[in-house]
Design a protein around this nucleic acid. Structure first.
Length: 424
RNA sequence: GGUGAGGUGCCUGAGAGGCCGAAAGGACCGGUUUGCUAAACCGGCGUACGGGUCAAACUGUACCGAGGGUUCGAAUCCCUCCCUCACCGCCA
């Protein structure tokens, strides 16, 4: 959520930036916000002044009663009654205004950072760089769903039986490879100074709101009405919420965390295309990175995180490209996002395996995550997160790209986690 | 699931209708003292939204789990909800 104060002081900039995101109702909403904010201030002042009169009169009544002046007290009571009568409607209006202001404010997306490219569609994302070597597969190479069957690694039909489509069962070496990936990713991250967390896989409404999943994406999350919990679509939600309502010391920044979790996504409306095999699932394994940093450092941190994820992909020997997402393709809450895609050689297409974003104060304003600066003022920190990495698509590309007549050759970094150097 | 006890500031913990934004201690920050470390002593130390100011000082309102109610006045009384703890039951 944007800060009203910021909008008030930087209206032109806000409109300009929102145009980069191709956000249609920007001008109308911004005007609405400013008008409501103005109204809120007026009503607040009015309320405060009247309430102050009530408070001071009440104090006097106390003193009059104590000194035995009953009639004096009674006449003051009548005054208070008049003030309170005025207070009722003011309070009502104030409440309504505040709610409307808030509801309007949450409809505004985050402002894209200064290096976000203009554009509307994924085709307008800007490729930053590529790495790795795209393999040439031998004749007869097959996609990962065939390999999964051939080596008995994943059983999709079994998942259908137990739950439904999009919930695969990993078996034998497939299960072991998933576990190896998770362990390797976590170790790689902790070696870089990230603290490992293992959080709940369900969150309450407040947490889902904090990171921006609500009110925007409730349709994408699994929901348990009995307990009012949501299954997490990413561990970003519980991990970032660890610091909700906290005021940090400047010396505690940056906060660096990494967490494994399964991720649950309803993926409503995305049936059909691209859902084959491991490409798009309702439950998948992922290791996530989250950082809370000083506002001056978030873009440096964003670069660091991109470099970190890049090293991880390189260590797996996968061909990849990094995209600077254009305004139109970025998420609602993000100020800048870099997507990582790896080349799936048998499917002949790029698969997104990581998305690294700077949210600036968009999430921390909702969550009230602040630090105390040298002047003792509380200032919102910036939050960032990124996948490191989404396991199923990594597994898919590892299988496809490394298939040989002698089995699937695994990158060296995985050998000690997997136990052997190949799936044969 | 049952029964009981509770939710007060960074923490512990008092307060039981007005003198309470809240005692006291600890932690933390600043200072004095001090061979060093420590101790002692003095001072400071919540958040949000407003007014005010170049900035401060200063000042208003709200906040003692959340939301309502009673009252001139609520941390304190009443109602609803949420949560925590203890014991029992069940159980990985």
């Amino acid at each position: 959520m944007l800060q009203v104060q910021f909008i008030r002081q930087n209206k032109e900039l806000v409109l300009e930036r929102l145009a980069v995101k191709n956000f249609a109702d920007a001008a109308t909403l911004v005007e609405e916000v400013l008008a409501l904010d103005e109204q809120r201030k007026k009503l607040t002042l009015d309320y405060d002044e009247t309430q102050a009169k009530v408070n001071s009169a009440s104090k006097e009544i106390g003193k009059l009663m104590a000194s035995g002046d009953k009639s004096g007290a009674e006449s003051r009571k009548l005054e208070v009654a008049a003030f309170k009568q005025a207070l009722g409607p003011i309070n009502e209006q104030l409440g309504a205004t505040e709610k409307l202001l808030h509801d309007t404010l949450v409809r505004l997306p985050n402002l894209p950072g200064s290096t976000v490219p203009k554009g509307r569609t994924p085709e307008e994302n800007v490729e930053v760089r590529r790495g790795g070597v795209i393999p040439t597969l031998a004749a007869g190479a097959v996609p990962h769903w065939d390999l999964a069957k051939q080596y008995d690694l994943i059983d999709f039909e079994l998942g259908n039986k137990i739950t439904g489509s999009g919930f695969p069962v990993y078996k034998n070496k497939g299960a072991r490879l998933q576990r190896a990936l998770i362990s390797y990713f976590l170790d790689f991250n902790t070696a870089a100074g990230y603290n490992e967390m293992l959080t709940p896989f369900m969150v309450n409404e407040t947490s889902a709101y904090g990171t921006g999943q609500l009110p925007d994406k409730e349709g994408q999350m699994y929901y348990m009405p009995e307990d009012n919990f949501y299954l997490i679509p990413t561990s970003e939600v519980p991990v970032t919420n660890i610091y909700r309502d906290e005021i940090l010391k400047e010396s505690e920044l940056p906060v660096k965390m990494t967490a494994y979790s399964p991720c649950f996504r309803r993926e409503a409306g995305s049936y059909g295309k691209d859902v084959r095999g491991l490409n798009r699932l309702h439950q998948f394994e992922k290791v996530e990175l989250v950082q809370l940093v000083h506002p001056d450092k978030s873009y440096t941190t964003l670069e660091e995180m991109v470099a970190h994820v890049e090293k991880l992909i390189q260590s797996l020997g996968l061909p990849y490209r990094i995209l600077n997402l254009c305004g139109g393709d970025m998420s609602f809450a993000s100020a800048q996002t870099f997507d990582f895609e790896v080349w799936s050689a048998a499917q002949q297409k790029w698969l997104e395996v990581s998305s690294v974003s700077n949210f600036e104060t968009f999430q921390t304003n909702r969550m009230k995550v602040r630090y105390k600066d040298e002047n003792g003022k509380n200032v919102l920190v910036h939050s960032l997160n990124g996948s490191s990495l989404a396991c199923p698509r990594i597994m898919a590309t590892l299988l496809e790209n490394n298939q040989t007549p002698d089995g699937i050759l695994l990158p060296e970094v995985l050998h000690k986690y997997f136990g052997t150097d190949r799936i044969a």
